[in-house]
Simulated assay, not measured.
Amino acid sequence: MRKSILVMTIAAASMLITSCSSKKELVACQEENKALQTNYTDTKEKLAASTARVASLEQQLSQAEKANAALQNALEKSLANTSQNNVSIEKLVDQINESNKYIRHLVEVKSKSDSLNMVLTNNLTRSLSKEELKDVDVQVLKGVVYISLADNMLYKSGSYEISDRASETLSKIAKIIKDYKDYDVLIEGNTDNVPIKRENIRNNWDLSCLRASSVVQALQNQYGVDPKRLTAGGRGEYNPLQPNSSEAGKQRNRRTQIIITPKLDEFMELIGQAPAEE
């Protein structure tokens, strides 16, 4: 009996020890599980945070790449524009240089023309007598030499035929014209406003043109001026110097002008040398 009780007591003790051991292990396992659960939660939260951070970085990277692409495009356009601007500036500088060269050329031509005009005028006035200078007016206006001849000296009364009195004066003018071969000569007839109607003369237009033509033909046929340099024209009563209300004014308006200018083809050549406009 005692033996049985002893055996039972040992068995109960063994079971108690076993039970205590299992409880300690359970507590330990529970604590370990709790710690693992805590670690899992922390790790999960850190993973979520990392994932969000990666997504944010990827978005920032994408935006940065787009911004960089835009900047690159802007830079390329800027470089292209700069290149075009440089080309435009260089072209503009070339045009300015050409324009300056053209202006200098014009100044040289004008200076030369002014000098020649003064020499021509001085030579002409020195060749004319004091009596002739009463009926001949010589002026230089805007680079052009104007020789104005009174009609009462130049033509027979009421006619377009050259008078004998005018022959010597015309010969002196013709000599000057022949000395300056680089000039063209326009002969321009002018009248007062008194109407005229005669055989073969319908009006003052006809009279002014016929008088200019008479002077041109005299310069060509009697004094040997090259006809290629000569032009005849009439302005009738429409280019007066004075009002036609007085006899003195009418007398001033009845005149023939010999206009000496640099050759037209030289002016056209200058125009051809002008810089082209953009």
Rank of each mutant, 00 (worst) to 15 (best):
E237R: 06
Q217N: 13
R229Y: 03
A232E: 08
R211S: 05
K172S: 08
Y223F: 14
L207T: 06
I177N: 05
D182Y: 14
V225S: 02
S213D: 15
N239K: 10
I177W: 01
D182W: 10
L207Y: 13
N204F: 09
Y183F: 13
P240N: 10
P243E: 09
A174R: 09
N239R: 07
R255P: 01
I177T: 03
V216R: 12
E247S: 11
D206G: 04
P243L: 07
R235P: 01
V225H: 04
D179V: 13
I187N: 02
L207W: 00
A212F: 06
N253T: 05
R202V: 07
N244W: 01
R202E: 13
Q220G: 05
E247Y: 05
R198P: 10
D184C: 03
A218Y: 13
D184W: 01
P243Y: 07
D184K: 04
Q217M: 07
V185D: 08
I177F: 08
C209G: 15
I187Y: 07
P227G: 03
D179W: 14
P227E: 05
Y183T: 00
G224L: 01
N244T: 01
K175Y: 10
G234I: 04
P195F: 09
I201V: 09
Y183D: 08
Q251R: 11
A218G: 02
K250I: 04
R229K: 08
R254M: 05
K172Y: 12
K181E: 14
N204Y: 12
Y180M: 03
D184G: 11
V194A: 12
N253A: 02
V215R: 05
R198V: 13
L219V: 01
N244I: 00
T191N: 08
I187M: 06
D206Q: 11
A174T: 03
V185E: 07
Q242C: 10
W205L: 14
P195C: 06
N221S: 11
G189T: 08
R202Y: 10
R254A: 12
N193L: 06
T231V: 08
V216I: 10
R252F: 11
I201W: 11
N204D: 13
I176R: 13
Q222H: 09
G234V: 06
G224V: 00
L210V: 10
T191I: 01
R198G: 15
G189F: 03
I196M: 14
A174Q: 07
I176A: 00
S214G: 07
Q222L: 11
L186C: 00
N244Q: 04
N244D: 14
P243F: 06
K175T: 15
G189V: 08
V194P: 04
Q220P: 02
N190H: 10
Q222M: 11
D192N: 10
V216Y: 01
R252P: 10
K172Q: 14
I187P: 01
N253F: 02
Q242A: 13
V215E: 03
Y180F: 11
D206H: 15
C209W: 15
N253K: 06
N239I: 00
I173D: 04
L219R: 05
I196E: 05
Y223G: 03
S214R: 00
A218F: 09
V215H: 02
V194K: 14
I173M: 14
G233L: 14
R255V: 04
K250V: 04
R254C: 05
G236W: 01
E188V: 09
N239Y: 13
N190T: 04
N239C: 12
S245M: 12
T191Q: 09
P240Y: 00
W205C: 10
R252H: 11
E247R: 06
Q217C: 01
